[in-house]
Design a protein around this nucleic acid. Structure first.
Lengths: 204, 204, 204, 204
DNA sequence: CATGAATGAGCTTTCATTCAT
DNA sequence: GATGAATGAAAGCTCATTCAT
């Protein structure tokens, strides 16, 4: 029981470290973020980090993968609700673009990994795997939607799903944080859905 | 005259360093690429790098900005030829996606800068400036095309041009190098153009 | 409490570094003394130095200024005791020349700074300021002594005090460490006081 | 004959290098003066220096010793003219203090060597030898003057001559370049002579 | 458990020196 | 004889990691 309390405390602190690390790694990059800085930001000393993570690299892995898993779960969940494929995809786009701001650090981390594939080969693989799961799922839903006439028939579902993921990442990367408050923002979200070439789509 | 020969030699070697640096920075990231490694790869010793670039950071700046300038020039040039706006944009997309493979390292570098805005504030600004020039130019051409009925009238040119750039970057980042040999590749290029919502476009 | 113990330990070690640095800088000069050598001499590794001083230059500053402050304090103190001006000055000379051996490294450091004014402009200024305080104080005491008839009236106090400081420095610089054990040494001290042209002075 | 012309040219250039090196070494210190900088200042390239001096250290030796020899020669010469010992010493002091400004760089060099005895043991020895020759010569002249009643009898000639040299060095080191234009300057020179305790000396 | 001083490998950068031209 | 590009050893400094307290 006392055990459990301690366990909770540990988890709590682990989470704090992770949160702070996400921010710092995303803003400054992996190498430019020192473990001492992370420690300082959460008000502990440098040694403490290593009580929760065996190494800086392990911390980075967790920093990248754990949020990615979250995002993935939510995305997949939004595709497994009730509704037609077109509705599901529209919801997913809506949800992802609504959260792109609160997830921007996490997305940037993912992208920074992809930009250092040789440095982090294992991590890169996991990220690509995770992306593949998402694209595959989207692909399946999309194909179904096509067969139901909800999407234009001419496009390859594999290409469409990959295009969308590329677009999502490109937007998160290229755009500053302020874009979400920009009047264009709604149009951009709409255009993300337009990428799927919905049948009834008329230039909005 | 002898002067010219030496000058040429210097430029030649400078170019060699830059080429190698692009590859290594893109693959391993800035911090994980040592100047010694770059030197070794070109078969010189560590000190030589600093005869051509005052610091590692200056080398990185050149590595990012000089190719970006090239890409920009080519892109702008392809938009200033004869032809209707739709033709020009189609050519630009064609050209950029055809070269995305040979430029993938350069594009990854640009993205890695955007992922470390705090670390490289000045460089980030220059990159954003360069991107803005491209999006502004595309925007103008697109607007003209819209007014001529070549593109669907409902989309905001500013949004469209930014979407395209995001897409281009997202593709370069997310996709592996092998994608270009994939059968899907041609479709992806087509979809990039589809983003512009050409009027007569029917799901190809 | 534990806090105090640590604080003490830190100060102790800081002092050790400083002591060793004084010797090495004085013997080998600034540039020829490596931080690694200092570390080695105290039996720690290279990084440790930088836990106590932010840079080699900062260490050098401390190495020069902290002993200088000590010397200054002692000198001024010896001029603020009870006694006639002549007695005070005689005491000061006595004290300074008695300690010139134990301070010879510190004095040499001061002189090496003055010999590199361009290299260490800020430090030079501080050293000159410190010297000025000493000469000004001596000057005032001397002037009082003159008005009391203890010193020959014909000399400018400003010149006398500066002469004495120059002499003190010159002796520390030119003379080897062995001089203090030389029979001439006592005479030299006497001559330092002779510089002040005491009235009753007859070639001792 | 052509040989002689070349020889002259070589000597000329060697002299130029030496002159510039004196200034730079004196202002910035040995380690902080790069051979490249010296070369640049005289308008040649880095390699050229090594055609005239086998190493930077050899150049430094020449930079210190050659002017020292000059100064020594002049000083000795001024002590070997006609006149009583007191006149000779007065002349020497006059001459040395008059030139202290134009020789300040050379003197600073000498002092910088004494501040790095371990770094330059051989050079230090030569400097000390040279100083000894001067003090010995002064000592002999002074002793003669004492026996002739020109100087107070109570002082040890060895101590007096060393005091004077110390004073000379101390003045050159401690005082800035501007002092020579200061009204106090004449007094200072007088005081240098006062150090010798001339018999008839009354506070000037 | 947390601490934080010590470690030491590793990095960028400098610069005296060499040598092909 | 002058050049100046290349060299490569050496320096200052950083920082992930360890471990005695």
């Amino acid at each position: 029981m006392a055990r459990t309390v301690n366990e909770e405390k540990r988890l709590e602190r682990r989470k704090r470290i992770l949160e702070e690390a996400v921010v710092l790694f995303a803003e400054n990059g992996y190498s430019n973020t020192t473990t001492a800085l992370i420690a300082k930001k959460i008000g502990v000393t440098s040694g403490t980090i290593f009580q929760y993570f065996p190494s800086k690299e392990a911390l980075f892995h967790a920093t990248v993968l754990e949020p990615l898993e979250d995002i993935q779960k939510k995305s997949l969940a939004s595709l497994q609700q009730n509704g037609t494929p077109a509705e599901l995809i529209k919801n997913m786009v809506e949800e992802q673009f609504n959260h792109i701001y609160s997830y921007s650090n996490e997305l940037r981390l993912v992208q920074s990994v992809l930009g250092q594939r040789i440095r982090f080969p294992e991590l890169t693989q996991k990220v690509l795997d995770s992306i593949k799961i998402m694209t595959d799922t989207i692909e399946a839903v999309y194909a179904k939607g096509q067969s139901m006439g909800e999407f234009s028939p001419g496009f390859s579902p594999a290409m469409i799903s990959r295009s969308y993921i590329s677009f999502l990442n490109g937007v998160a990367l290229t755009l500053g944080e302020d874009i979400v408050h920009h009047p264009e923002w709604e149009n951009l979200k709409g255009h993300a859905y337009y990428l799927f070439a919905p049948s009834q789509h008329r230039a909005k």
